[in-house]
Design a protein around this nucleic acid. Structure first.
Length: 844
RNA sequence: GGGCAAUUAGCUCAGUUGGUUAGAGCGCUUGAUUCACAUUCAAGAGGUCACAGGUUCGAGUCCUGUAUUGCCCACCA
C-alpha cells in the first residue's frame, strides 16, 4: 500500500526551520509586495545592538513579526524595516575592556585609530545578531537593513542638526553636567543610575556655623553656606561670614529655601561647581563657580598637598587634616543614593563643562499635542500619560558627548582672532571650514552626538535612506518596543519627526514589558535565572518560544517565561502536526480539495467554531491583543478541532471540511507560529505557493448553527464523567430524543458507550437533556447522595435566580437581554431539578 | 517625596466597555489506551478574586482607604 503522505511521527523543527526561512527570504516574501491591494503598513524595528546577542527580551519582537505577517496576509504592502545600532558608549566600553585585557587603553591608540577599530569590530559582530533574529523567524526585510552609522543616515542627522541650529533650537552652554571620569564624557540624567550606598556624614566646623557633608574633599570649592530662611537657630547667621576650614577662606552665609531644616545641622555648604543643587543655588545667588576636580577626576586648584589626588584619596587626606585640626566634629553613617554611570559603573562626578544643548520646551509642545489629541494611539493607554508627563518636564537636552565612538558633531571652531568670523561653523564638510576660516585657523569638533540624537531620527532617516519615505511608507503604522525606551526614544522620535516632517512618525505605539523568569523575577546573570532563547529554541523549536511569549502576556506588563511553559507549546505544535498528519493520512489517492459541503451536525458545529474564531482572532490582532489571538487558536485547535471534530470524523470523514478547517487554522496561526504552519502547508500537494503570502481567511462563509452537535457533546461529556466516577465500562446510553439518537454512532464512539438506544421513557442515571445511562437500582442508590448534593446545589442556584427576578429594580434596570437570560436559566434549572427530583422519587 | 502597575487555584498568568455558578497552562489525584499524537486521551480535586469600606438591581471588574510586591521619576548635604 502506497503511503502518499509521509510526515514524521512528531514535528521536528530542526528539519524545517532554516530551510523555510531561507525560502521565505529568497522568494522576496519579506519585501513589501508591489502588487498589494491595500495601503502600506510599516513597522520600523528598534535597532539592534550590533555587538549584542539575542536574549529573552528580544523574544518580544515576536509581536512585531506577528503584526507584520498578519498585515502581509491581509494584503497590505508590508514593510518591517530592520536596523543595527552602533550603541555608542556601550560598544566603546566593551571594546575598551578587550583592549584592557591586552594591557592597552584607547589613549594608546588615539581617537582615529580607536574609532576605526571599534567600527571594524562592530561590522564584524553585526551578522551575529542578525542571524539570531532570522532564526527567530522574524520576517523583516533584511535587504533594507540600516546601520546607525551608515553615511546616508549620518547625512540626515547632520541636516537636522544644522536646521535646528539655524532655527535657534540649539545652543552651547557652560553648565554642570553628569561627568564620567572613566569615559571622560558627559551623560544625560537618564544615563545615570542611582544606587543606595552606605557612606558617612561628616559635621564640620565652619566658624560660626556647623555644616554636614558627605563630600569633605569639596570644601575648597565652597562658595557659601546656605541655611533655610525659616530656620530659627541658623537663620540669624544669614549675612555673617563662615570660614572654610584648612584654608580659612571666608564665605557668606546665605538663605535659600532649598535647604532642609531637619537634615544634618540645617546648614549646607554650597559647592556650585560640583553639585547639581548647589549649582542652582549658585545661580540664584550669583555665587562663583570654583572647579576643583578635573575631567580625570583629580584634584586641581587646591592646596598643594591635595593636588593631583583622586577624589577618593583627597577625601581621606582632607578628613585626616580636618580631624587633626579639630574641625571634624562628628562622623556618622548615612545611607544615601549615589549616581553611577549606567554603562561603566563609575561614580558620576558633577562638574562644569561646555556642551551643546537642545531647547526642549518649544520642540516638545507639538509632541505633547500629538499624544493628547491621539494622533498617536498608545497601547496600553496608560503610557500616554507617562509620555506626556515626561515631555512636560524634560529639561534642555545635552546632546554632545565626549565619547570617541559615535557620530562626530559637524562643527568647526574658529582658532584665529579674526573678529569678522563666527566663533564656530556648522558643517560636516571640512573644505567649507577651510574656505571660511582659512588654512590653520580652525579646529574640528571632537565631540560626538548623544546616540539618542541620531536614533531619535531613526523612523524617518531609515525610510529616507531606502527611498521608501516617498513611496507612502511614512508615517509608519506601528512602533513596537519595550516600555523602557518610551521616554528616551519614542518621545524623541516623535519630536524629531514633527520637527522635520511635520508628521507624527507612527500612528500606533505598542509597548511590551520585561520577560521574567518562571517565578516572575527579573532575569539576571547574577541570579543565574537567565533563559537563553537560542538554547530553548534548539530544544523545543522556535514556534514554541514564540507561543510562550505570546499567550498569557499582556501589553505593557511583565511576563514570565520558563522551560515547562515552552515545552507546553512545543506539545501544541506537535498536536497541530499530528492533526495534519492524521487528516492527510485519511485522504484518498490524488485528492484535491473542493469547497466543503456541510453534511452533519458536526460539520455545522465546527464551521460555526471556525467562523467565530476567524472573527475573534482578527479582532484581537487589530487591537494588538496577541495573547487573546493565541489563546483562541490554541483552544480551537486542541479543544474543538482535534478533540471533537477530528475524533468525530473518524466515523465518516468530510475530507473537504477537514482540509478547510486545517488550512484555516494554519493561516490564522501562521503569524504566531510561522514555522510549523508553513511546514505543514508545504506538505499539502495542492498548495503551490507559500503560506506566508496567502490571504487572511474571512468569516463570511461560516455562519452556521452548531447547537445540534452541542447537545451530542453535552451528552457525551456527562456520560464520560459518570462512567469515570462509577468506573463503568461501555455503559448503555438511553435517549428519548430522535434527533439525538440520529447521532447514536457518534455518541457511542465518543462516550465509549456499549450502545445507544432510543427509548420511550428515560430511566437509569440522568445525564441531562434527554439522555440517561442505563443502570440498575443498586448503582442508582449508590449515587443517591450525589443526586441529593446536586439537588441542593441547583436549588440554591434556583433561589438566587428567583430572588433576582423578584427584584423589581433588577427587572427594571438590567438590560432586557440579561433579564431574559436569567429567565431562561431559571427555566432550565427548574427542568433539571424536576428530573433530579423524579429520579430521587423513583428510588423510594 | 511624586507616579504607575500588580495582588485571582499549589505555581505562572488570562479575565475586552460591570451582567451565567470566575478561566487557562503547568503541577496534583484517578483511570485509559498503543489503531494521528505518552510531546496522548478521559475524568477529578483545588479559588470567601490581598484587606476594609462605598457606589449599583448586580462588583474580580467602578470609587475611597489600607497592606504587600515590583517598576518609573525626582531628591538625598
Amino acid at each position: 500500500m502506497k503511503q502518499h503522505f509521509e510526515l514524521d511521527k512528531a514535528y521536528n523543527p530542526a528539519k524545517y526551520e532554516a530551510k523555510l526561512y531561507q525560502q521565505w527570504e529568497e522568494s522576496g516574501a519579506f519585501k513589501p509586495n508591489p502588487d498589494a491591494t491595500k495601503e502600506p503598513f510599516t513597522i520600523i524595528m528598534p535597532p539592534l545592538n550590533a555587538n549584542g546577542d539575542m536574549h529573552a527580551g528580544h523574544g518580544m519582537y515576536v509581536v512585531e513579526d506577528i503584526t507584520a505577517r498578519y498585515r502581509r496576509m491581509q494584503g497590505h504592502a508590508t514593510l518591517w524595516l530592520p536596523g543595527t545600532d552602533h550603541a555608542a558608549i556601550e560598544t566603546q566600553v566593551v571594546y575598551e575592556r578587550l583592549l584592557a585585557m591586552q594591557g592597552q587603553s584607547r589613549f594608546d591608540l588615539g581617537r582615529e585609530e580607536f574609532s576605526r577599530q571599534v567600527l571594524e569590530f562592530t561590522h564584524k559582530n553585526s551578522p551575529n545578531i542578525i542571524s539570531q533574529f532570522k532564526s527567530a523567524g522574524y520576517s523583516a526585510d533584511w535587504s533594507r537593513l540600516k546601520f546607525t552609522l551608515d553615511p546616508d543616515i549620518v547625512e540626515i542627522v547632520y541636516a537636522t542638526f544644522k536646521q535646528m541650529h539655524a532655527d535657534g533650537h540649539i545652543y552651547r552652554g557652560n553648565r554642570i553636567v553628569n561627568w564620567c571620569t572613566n569615559c571622560r564624557s558627559s551623560f544625560a540624567d537618564i544615563e545615570v543610575k542611582f544606587v543606595e550606598r552606605e557612606d558617612a556624614l561628616y559635621t564640620l566646623d565652619y566658624g560660626p556655623v556647623r555644616i554636614a557633608t558627605t563630600r569633605p574633599e569639596t570644601i575648597f570649592a565652597d562658595a557659601a553656606v546656605a541655611v533655610n530662611p525659616k530656620d530659627d537657630v541658623n537663620g540669624e547667621l544669614v549675612g555673617e561670614t563662615a570660614l572654610i576650614p584648612l584654608i580659612d577662606r571666608p564665605i557668606p552665609i546665605i538663605a535659600d529655601e532649598h535647604v532642609d531644616l531637619h537634615f544634618g545641622t540645617g546648614a549646607l555648604k554650597v559647592t556650585p561647581a560640583h553639585d547639581k543643587n548647589d549649582y542652582e543655588i549658585g545661580l540664584r545667588h550669583r555665587l562663583p563657580e570654583i572647579s576643583i576636580i578635573d575631567l580625570d577626576g583629580r584634584m586641581i586648584n587646591v592646596p598643594e598637598e591635595y593636588a593631583g589626588l583622586t577624589v577618593a584619596e583627597a577625601r581621606q587626606a582632607v578628613l585626616a587634616a580636618l580631624d587633626q585640626t579639630g574641625k571634624l566634629l562628628e562622623t556618622k553613617p548615612l545611607t544615601h543614593s549615589v549616581g553611577y554611570h549606567d554603562r561603566c559603573g563609575t561614580v558620576i562626578e558633577p562638574l562644569i563643562t561646555e556642551q551643546w544643548y537642545l531647547r526642549m520646551a518649544e520642540l516638545n509642545a507639538p509632541v505633547i499635542k500629538a499624544f493628547e489629541t491621539n494622533q498617536i494611539t498608545v497601547y496600553p493607554a496608560r503610557f500616554k500619560k507617562i509620555a506626556i508627563d515626561w515631555l512636560n518636564n524634560e529639561h534642555d537636552w545635552n546632546i554632545s558627548r565626549q565619547n570617541w565612538f559615535g557620530i562626530r558633531m559637524p562643527i568647526f571652531y574658529k582658532e584665529s582672532n579674526d573678529p569678522n568670523k563666527d566663533p564656530y561653523l556648522i558643517t560636516a564638510d571640512e573644505a567649507e571650514a577651510k574656505a571660511y576660516y582659512g588654512e590653520g585657523n580652525y579646529r574640528a569638533e571632537t565631540d560626538v552626538f548623544d546616540t539618542w540624537f541620531s536614533s531619535g531620527q531613526w523612523a524617518y532617516a531609515t525610510l529616507m535612506a531606502t527611498g521608501d519615505f516617498d513611496r507612502g511608507f511614512f508615517p509608519t503604522s506601528a512602533m513596537m518596543s519595550g516600555r523602557d525606551i518610551l521616554t528616551k526614544w519614542i518621545t524623541r522620535m516623535t519630536m524629531f519627526s514633527l520637527y522635520r516632517t511635520r508628521q507624527v512618525p507612527f500612528k500606533d505605539v505598542y509597548l511590551w514589558g520585561l520577560v521574567n523568569d518562571a517565578h516572575g523575577k527579573k532575569m539576571s546573570k547574577s541570579k543565574g535565572n537567565v533563559l537563553n532563547p537560542l538554547e530553548v529554541t534548539a530544544k523545543y523549536g522556535t514556534d514554541a518560544l514564540r507561543l510562550a511569549l505570546t499567550i498569557g502576556i499582556t501589553p505593557g506588563n511583565d511576563g514570565s517565561l520558563s522551560e515547562p511553559k515552552i515545552e507546553g507549546y512545543r506539545n501544541f505544535c506537535n498536536k497541530l502536526w499530528n492533526v495534519a498528519r492524521f487528516i492527510l493520512g485519511q485522504l484518498p489517492e490524488a485528492y484535491s480539495p473542493a469547497t466543503p459541503e456541510l453534511h452533519s451536525p458536526t460539520d455545522r458545529w465546527i464551521m460555526a467554531k471556525l467562523a467565530t474564531t476567524i472573527t475573534e482572532v482578527t479582532r484581537a490582532l487589530e487591537d494588538y491583543r496577541f495573547g487573546d489571538a493565541g489563546q483562541t487558536l490554541y483552544s480551537l485547535l486542541w479543544d474543538d478541532f482535534a478533540d471533537w471534530y477530528v475524533e468525530a470524523s473518524k466515523i465518516s470523514p468530510n475530507h473537504d471540511l477537514l482540509i478547510y478547517g486545517l488550512e484555516t487554522i494554519l493561516k490564522l496561526l501562521h503569524p504566531i507560529a510561522p514555522f510549523v504552519t508553513e511546514a505543514i502547508w508545504s506538505e499539502l500537494p495542492w498548495q503551490s505557493s507559500q503560506l506566508i503570502i496567502t490571504s487572511w481567511p474571512s468569516a463570511n462563509k461560516g455562519r452556521t448553527n452548531g447547537t445540534e452537535f452541542e447537545a451530542v457533546r453535552q451528552t457525551v461529556l456527562a456520560a464520560r464523567a459518570l462512567a469515570a466516577e462509577e468506573q463503568l465500562s461501555k455503559p448503555a446510553i438511553l435517549t428519548t430524543d430522535k434527533t439525538l439518537f440520529a447521532s447514536a454512532e457518534l455518541i457511542q464512539r465518543l462516550a465509549r458507550a456499549g450502545e445507544v438506544r432510543l427509548v420511550k421513557q428515560g430511566s437509569g442515571l440522568y445525564l441531562g437533556g434527554e439522555a440517561w445511562i442505563e443502570a440498575g437500582d443498586e448503582l442508582i442508590k449508590a449515587r443517591q447522595h450525589r443526586l441529593q448534593q446536586q439537588r441542593a446545589e441547583k436549588t440554591g442556584y434556583l433561589k438566587s435566580l428567583q430572588a433576582k427576578l423578584a427584584n423589581e429594580r433588577f427587572v427594571a434596570s438590567a438590560p432586557a437581554a440579561v433579564v431574559q437570560e436569567t429567565r431562561d436559566r431559571q427555566a432550565e434549572t427548574e427542568a433539571l431539578l424536576e428530573r433530579i427530583e423524579a429520579q430521587l422519587q423513583s428510588l423510594r
